[in-house]
């Protein structure tokens, strides 16, 4: 039983780190800051949550604290990326050339 939990936890942690890897690949491949923030936020949120969940399964004593960490990440991650994107738009960081529309500049 203990062993099963440990293996399940390890697999979930691995899946989480794959998402984190894809997120960092997105940071390199995307053409402008807004698209980079997009891939960064989404992948890091689920990646970190899955990694923490895997750790919680391996060390069941830590479950309460890890649950707190997950909630904290779920609340703060979108807020921080929103603020970064807003600041980028405020200093007129350009959108990539293939962008189709920018309603925020028009108003």
């Amino acid at each position: 039983m203990e062993n099963t939990l440990e293996i399940t936890g390890a697999i979930i942690t691995l899946i989480g780190s794959i998402f984190l890897f894809l997120g960092s690949l997105g940071l390199v491949r995307m053409p402008d800051i807004y698209n980079r923030i997009q891939t960064g936020t989404k992948a890091s949120t689920l990646g970190t949550i899955l990694t923490l969940l895997g750790i919680a399964l391996m060390n069941t004593d830590w479950f309460g604290k890890i649950l707190l960490l997950m909630i904290f990440i779920l609340i703060t991650n979108p807020v921080s990326s929103h603020v970064l994107a807003r600041a980028a738009h405020y200093i007129k960081s350009p959108l990539t050339k293939i962008s189709v529309t920018d309603k925020l500049v028009d108003n």
Binding site: L22, G26, T39, L95, T96, I98, S99, D102, L104
Partner: peptide, 16 residues
């Protein structure tokens, strides 16, 4: 995100 990042042609059409 994974699909867009891994596709070689980078299928995005961004805008605000």
């Amino acid at each position: 995100v994974a699909r867009r990042v891994l596709t070689p042609s980078l299928p995005i059409k961004p805008g605000i």
